[in-house]
Nucleic acid binder design. Sequence first.
DNA 1: CCATTATGAGTGAACGTTCACTCACATCCT
DNA 2: AGGATGTGAGTGAACGTTCACTCATAATGG
Lengths: 197, 197
Amino acid sequence: MSKDARIDARNKVRDAAIALFAQKGVKATTIKDIARAAGVSEGALYRHWASKEDLAAALFAAEYTALSHSLREAAGSGPAPERLRRVIVWAFGLVEAAPDRARFLLLSQHDALPPVPALMKDGLETPVDVVCAIVGDGIAERSIVDADREALAHTVIGAIVLNIQSHVYGRQTAPLGTLADTVADALLRGLSTGKGA
Amino acid sequence: MSKDARIDARNKVRDAAIALFAQKGVKATTIKDIARAAGVSEGALYRHWASKEDLAAALFAAEYTALSHSLREAAGSGPAPERLRRVIVWAFGLVEAAPDRARFLLLSQHDALPPVPALMKDGLETPVDVVCAIVGDGIAERSIVDADREALAHTVIGAIVLNIQSHVYGRQTAPLGTLADTVADALLRGLSTGKGA
DNA sequence: CCATTATGAGTGAACGTTCACTCACATCCT
DNA sequence: AGGATGTGAGTGAACGTTCACTCATAATGG
C-alpha cells in the first residue's frame, strides 16, 4: 500500500462521510455505512478519529471554516453592498458546485451542537462573522443602513439559507442563478442607503 | 393508578415530548425519557401513537398547522407590507410566549423530513404558504415589488428563522422586540414598492 | 339498586435489533 | 525490525417495541 493510498483512505472516508451525512444526517448514518462507502474497515476509522462524533465535528469544523474563507475571498473588495451581492451569488453557486458540502453544512448545524460554540472559543472565523464584518464595514462607510449589524447579517444569511433549503427540498424550482439575483436585489434594496461608499 | 393519570396521559405526553424534542431533538430523545417526564409508562405511549416517529410527526404536524393559523390571524387585513410586519412581530413574540414550541418547530424540520411533503399532499396550509399568499397579494396590489413570490417569501421567513435561531442559541443578545423591528424594517424596505395598496 | 360483565387505558419486564466501539491479528512502509 | 495502519468478528449497552396482565369505570341485567 503506497503512501498515497493511505492518504486517499483518509480522504475517502471524509468524502464518503460528508456525502452520507448530507443525505441522512449524522445520527442516521452508521459507522458501517461510512466504512462501506469509503471502502475501508470500521476499525480503520478509529485510527484517525476518536469517535463518530469526533469525525462529524472535525468535518463540520473544516467545512465551516473553509466556507468562511471562500466567502471572504468571494466578497472581494469595494462597497459593502457589492461585496454582499457577491457573497449571496457565491453561496447559491456552492449548491451547484458542491451540493454535498452545501447540504452537509445546512443539515449538520442541528446535529452537531457542540462544535459551533467551540469554534468561536478557538477564535476561528465563522461564515456569520464574515457577513457581520461586511455589514459592519457598510454601516461605517454609510452604504448600509445604521442598525444592529448582527440582526442585518442574520437577515442576509437566513434569506440565503432558506432559499437554498427550499431549492434543495424541491419546493423552489426556479433556477438558482435567477434566485440569487432576486434575493440579492430584495435584500440590498432593504439594506443599502443608496449612497456609495 | 390515579384518575388524573388516565385522563391527562395524552396531553402530558404531548407536553413532555415537545419539551424534550425541543431540547434534545427527536432522535436523541428516548421513549423512556418521554414516559418518565410525562409520568406514564412506556407502553402507554403506544396506546395513542404507533411509534415514536409517529408521535413526532403528529406533534410536528399539529404545531405546524397551528402556527399557520396563528400567522394568518396575526396578519389580519390591510396592505401586504403591514400584514407582513405583523407576521414578523408575531413570530418573534412566539419565542417569548412559547419557547418550547418555537424551538421544537425550529429543530424538528430536519429530524422530521417526511411529514412536510405529506402535509402539502393533504392540502394543509403551511406557514410558508401563508407568507407566500401575503406576498402574492402584495404583488397583485402593487405594494410588493414584482418578483418570484416564493423567493421573496423564503427571504422573509429565512430572515425571521435565522434571527430567532441566533437568539435561541445565544449569539444574538438584543431584546426580541427590537430585533423584530430591525428585521421588519430592513425586509419591508426591500420588498415594498412604497405605493399603498 | 346492586351484582356481573365488558371495556380499554395503563403498566413495565422482556425481547430482539441496532450500533458505536474494541481487539487480536495481518499487512505495509521505512 | 518495528511503528503505523488496516481488518472485521465480537461485545455490551441502549433503544424501540411488544404483550400478558391490572384495574377503574361504564354498561348491562335482574
